[in-house]
């Protein structure tokens, strides 16, 4: 299973990678623009996406990704410090399947990934 982790913080990406464990293959991207490029050429089974990022933020990525043929086929988990309901609703309306706020707990993330992919970590 290939999981794309999109976050501008190296530390946060590393934390997510460690939380996901060794049973999955992780691809990292530092912003939405890099993520769009990766999704155009790589097989991705799930995405974990931050919102506040330079170049192309998470919500704009969802808008752009929504225009591609792969839209809706890959589950997306938003992982952000935003707790505002409006932003969460906006992300969900743009195609995200779940919203997890930072700081997250490992079991929460693992349960979401398992629930969305059907594969245990």
């Amino acid at each position: 299973m290939n999981i794309l982790v999109v976050d501008d913080s190296v530390t946060m990406r590393k934390i997510v990678v460690l939380a996901l464990g060794n049973k999955v293959s992780v691809i990292e991207a530092e912003n939405g623009k890099a993520a769009l490029e990766i999704t155009s050429r790589e097989q991705v089974d799930l995405m974990i996406l931050d919102i506040n990022m330079p170049e192309l933020n998470g919500l704009d990525f969802l808008k752009e990704y929504g225009k591609t043929p792969k839209a809706g086929k890959v589950p997306i988990i938003m992982l952000s410090t935003h707790t505002e309901k409006e932003i969460q609703d906006q992300a969900m309306s743009l195609g995200a399947r779940a919203f997890l706020t930072k700081p997250f707990q490992k079991p929460e993330l693992q349960a979401l990934v398992t629930g969305l992919t059907g594969q245990s970590l």
Partner: peptide, 17 residues
Amino acid sequence: DMDSILEHLQFQDITRQ
């Protein structure tokens, strides 16, 4: 402990940002 450290490092990283 590792899970706990990962959680605390997130606080640290949020502060850093």
